[in-house]
Amino acid sequence: MLLTLRTRNKTGVRVGIGEAMALGSAATWAVGVILARQLGVHLPPLALNLLKNGLVLAVLAPVALVLHAGAWPSLPAEELAIVVASGVIGIALADTLYFRALNELGAGRMGVIGNLYSPLVLLLGFLFLDERLGAGQWLGFALVGLGVLLVSRPPGEWRTHPQHTARGVVIGLAAIALMAIAIVMVKRTLETQPLLWVTALRLAGAVAGLLGLAALPAMRARMRFVASEVPWRRLLVAALLGQGLSMVLWLGGYKFTSASVAAILNESASVFVVVLAALWLREPLGKRAFIGVVLTFSGIACMLLGRAMP
């Protein structure tokens, strides 16, 4: 059931916190994407994902213990399994694929492909969380999908590097789909459990999954990097800001408001990503991509104006 501006949710927190956290997550995630794009020159995707999440877990777990006075969370076995599985799917697998696509496509294009995330969450929320979609959501879904197709298939690049670009698009779309699945499966647990503990447990599942992937013989070669060439300070900032803080705010958005509203607001991350990619990384944005961006944000506007009905 959607919350209104004059009501409180079941936890007694004033409505508006969830929306603010979702927007804050978008801003910090965009910074993390830009930093990750630069870090990808020195670190392969799997190694980057493992290092970032390991750093965040090392900081977040002690913080959660202190804030909760050393009390461990009491989750039923089924909910614990769901939280851990959500971390494996949404972080270990999805983020690794995301960073791989980011290296191939660039921050600007990958940021717009990420706009497919909210339509997927809306669809999954309709199927599994009983969140009803109105006409505005379906129109938004179509516009965002069209925008993603336009941006992910710039004619010039498909003529010169067809296999490279096609592979990046497929990997990017798979990453976004896994992220959507992972957040919808943990939504109900988020509503009733402490935010920091759920975040820490998801991270623990993610780190375990990443270590398992790194141990595979076929993946060991993809873990190699030259430590002296890694910008460790930038990695620390990217981990704590773009991964840690962004993840807490992201999950907080889903805890304190509906999945559909949080997912829509998360899409504002693409605004920050495209602007930062142009200003910081000097990535060009052609006419076709610009039209895709306009269509994408028109779709987001439709979804905001036509909020999901209870």
Rank of each mutant, 00 (worst) to 15 (best):
G242C: 07
L5K: 15
P284T: 02
V230N: 10
R6C: 00
G134A: 06
L60W: 00
R8Q: 10
V83Q: 02
E283T: 05
I183G: 02
L235Q: 13
L93T: 06
P154W: 07
Y117R: 11
G147H: 10
G111I: 07
E157C: 10
R288K: 15
A262P: 05
N115W: 04
G90V: 09
L51K: 06
A26K: 11
L201C: 06
G40N: 05
W250V: 06
G18I: 14
R167D: 00
A174L: 15
L124F: 15
V294S: 09
A175C: 10
A58P: 09
A221Y: 04
G70L: 08
G156S: 15
A71Q: 15
P162F: 03
R14C: 00
M303N: 02
L251E: 00
L251F: 02
A182F: 09
V144G: 05
L251A: 01
I82D: 00
S118A: 15
R6S: 08
Q163W: 00
T199C: 03
K52Q: 14
V275W: 14
H161C: 03
L216R: 07
K255G: 02
I291D: 00
G125M: 03
A263P: 04
L122M: 12
S270D: 00
V184F: 00
V294C: 14
G172H: 14
L295N: 09
L285E: 00
L149V: 13
V169S: 15
N103G: 07
A239Y: 08
L23M: 13
E104W: 06
L196S: 01
L236Q: 06
G252Q: 13
L240F: 07
E78K: 13
L120V: 08
N53T: 02
M179E: 05
L122F: 10
L295V: 04
M185C: 08
L150E: 02
R153T: 12
A47K: 04
Y117K: 11
L285N: 05
L102T: 08
A206M: 06
V248E: 03
P217K: 09
G292P: 13
P231K: 03
G16V: 12
V59E: 11
M21H: 10
T189I: 05
I89A: 06
S152V: 06
G114V: 02
L65T: 01
E104C: 09
I89K: 02
W280T: 08
P194M: 12
P119C: 05
L51A: 14
R307L: 12
L251T: 01
V33S: 02
N103K: 15
R132Q: 11
Q38W: 06
G16P: 12
